[in-house]
Every structure is written in C-alpha cells, then in structure tokens.
Design a protein around this nucleic acid. Structure first.
Lengths: 191, 191
DNA sequence: CAGGATGTCTAGCGTTGCTAGAATGCCGTC
DNA sequence: GACGGCATTCTAGCAACGCTAGACATCCTG
C-alpha cells in the first residue's frame, strides 16, 4: 500500500511538471493565446479534465509557469551579480541580465508580469523565488543604505517599463542599451 | 440626397462614439474581461453585428478607447507642465500627473498600454495623440539637450513600470510618492 | 408606386474554459 | 484466483466567447 501509493505520487508529480513545461513550451513557440486547455491536454497526451485535477484552472497553470520563471530569473540575476567584481558594476550587470532575460524569454516574462496570475506579491505569502529575485536588486546596494528596498523598486520598475514598452514596440527596441546606460549613470552613486 | 446622407453620417458618427464610451464605461466599472461584444451591443441597444459595421473587431474597439485615452493623457500632462513655473519642477509635475492618470483611470490605462491593440508606436503612422503625449515628456528637457528623447523614454519607462507594478500589487502601492521623489532627484540636473 | 440599395437583426458556426457522470482499470480481500 | 470497491480517467456537454452569413425591414430614388 505504501510503495504503490508512493509510485502513484511520483507519477503524479511527474505529470504535474509535464503540464507546466508543455504550457511553457507552447507559449514560447506560439504565444500564450495558443495555450488552450485542449491543446495542452493533447500535448501531454491526456484528456482535458486531468489538467483540472492538477490545477484549479488555466490561471493556476500560468502561475506555475511564472513561478518557475521567477526561480530562473533569480538564478540568472545572481550569476550576473557574482560575476561582477564590485558593487558598482554589479548593479549594471544585474540590470543588463534582467533585460536579457526579458527579451530572450518573452513568453515566460509575460506570464510573470503581464498575464493575470494567482501569485501574491509584496506580502507574507510571497513565494520565496519572488523574494530572492527581488533581493538580487536590493543586494546591489550597500547594506547600510536604509532606502535600498525603495531604490531597488525604482530600478526594477524602470527595467520593467523598458522591457515591456520595447517589446510591444512603444519605444524603439534598438536604444535599449543606451537607455540602460543612462539609467545606471543616474542611479549610480546611491548604492 | 445630400442632406439625408449627411444626417445619416451624423447619426452614424454619434453611434460610433457611443460604442466607444460604452466600452470604456463598462471597462472602468467592471473591468475589461466584462467587455464582451454581446454586453456591449446590449448596452448601446443594438444587435451585435452593428459593432462590426463600425469596427473591425473587438481589438479595434479597444484601440479606439486607447486612442481617446492618449488624447486625454496628453492634455492632462500638458496642463501639469504649464502649471509648473520652471522647467525643473515641470518634470516632477508631469511625472506626478502621469501616475495620477494611471491610478485614477486604470481601465483606460490598461487599454493604452497592456491590452493588445492595433495602434502603431514609434513609427511614421503613429497617431498624433500618442506623439503629443510623448512630446510632453520630451518638452521637460531643454531643447539643446541632444538626448532629450532618450531621457524621455527612460522616464516614461520608469513611470510605466511603477504604475503597472503597483497596480498589480507587485510593489507596495503606498511608496509611490517616495519612489517618484527618488526618480526625479536622480534624473534632475540632466534637463 | 414600384425597385433597389442601405441598414439591421436573427440565427448559427467554431472555439473557449470548465464540469458532471459514465466507464475503465487497478487494488486489497475473501 | 475470482470479486467487490475505490480511485482515476475519459466521453460528452454546458454556457459564453468573437465573429459572420443570410433573411428581413426600411427608406430613398426614379
């Protein structure tokens, strides 16, 4: 009884992740509007209702993808920050990594920041990956800086704005590097 | 023939605007997910297909609402800029007005910047209201500043990020004023 | 007053997210 | 080793969506 239900649990967990990755792949290749419950079910080779035994609905699936995205983003930013020698260039490196992430994984970024999700932000129930991702920005400022969280919020906002406005063509996608340079120059000296 | 068709034309134009304002009101009171073609048709007291004799589809209706929004935003920013005495406080006033606009008309702002629309940005076919709205930011910098467009893009991006991240609860909505203050302080001195 | 064009509506197509209830298959027990 | 019972999966379908074809009515023109 124990071993059997354990195996089932394992298979179930495996299928759970299968759904998430299938949704993500489908979104990355054809966009989120192509991610329907039917196509997703077909992709994982199960019928539609099994999706609902794993997730509360489509929004929960998007949320799961977004959560994975936050983990990757956090790792990506951390790598960039540790690769930079001093706290000064660290901010620039992290910002560049952020924009890189947004442009290279547009569908994932969309799930994280644009599509409606169940994720709770800026509260006690905020999932750890979200916290650590944000923490990477905070860590670019000196620990004795009492307003580092605030600074991080502004930097993050600016980057998000740049990412999303250039992605949608509202600002020319070319000038991204120059804009980043200006932003960093203005913020620098405050860490 | 002339007078009659003129009257028809007038009625048609009136109904055209009626659809737009109905869509906007519905979105502002119940959110864009409640704006369906059926409910919209019921609201204007016509059947569904008349919507399609005025617009190419739902996206075109959203675009029309967004376009109106850009006109209002441009006027709102211009008012704020002219109310400020010097170019220094002008930037702050315009930024504050922008955030005000975003928080007070969330549905309208969503149509302008988040929902998919037909509007062309940063190109030759960009509608005038979009240009003038962006121009208000540019005008906050000195005419001899060769990078004023770039600066305006960064400021706009930062404001958009702040607006949308606080609206969705990704950053605490309270700190908005403080964040704005930090942003302006860093950008100031470059106009 | 008839003819034709214009404009509007009824009805319906295909697809969406989601779910109830039938059917299937696997487990533990006698 | 056959069987009852439970969990799981599927078939089928609902209501609502954006959108459209074709019938219907209405009004101007000759």
């Amino acid at each position: 009884m124990s071993a059997i239900s354990e195996r089932r649990e394992r298979e179930r967990a495996h299928r759970h992740q299968l759904i998430i990755t299938a949704a993500r792949e489908l979104a990355e290749t054809e966009g989120w509007e192509a991610v329907t419950t039917r196509r997703l079910a077909e992709r994982v080779e199960y019928s539609q209702p099994v999706l609902y035994s794993h997730f509360n609905g489509k929004e929960a699936i998007v949320s799961a993808v977004a959560l994975d995205g936050f983990s990757e983003l956090a790792a990506h930013l951390r790598r960039a920050r540790h690769a930079a020698p001093e706290p000064g260039p660290a901010l620039r490196a992290v910002c560049r990594a952020y924009l890189e992430f947004a442009t290279e994984r547009p569908a994932l970024y969309q799930a994280m920041f644009i599509l409606p999700t169940d994720l709770k932000f800026a509260s006690e129930e905020t999932p750890p990956p979200l916290r650590t991702a944000f923490g990477e920005f905070v860590s670019c400022f000196r620990p004795d800086n009492k307003r580092r969280e605030l600074f991080a919020e502004v930097v993050w906002s600016a980057l998000h704005g740049m990412a999303v406005l250039s992605e949608s063509g509202r600002i020319p996608p070319d000038g991204q590097e120059e804009r980043l340079d200006f932003l960093i120059t203005q913020i620098a000296g405050t860490h």
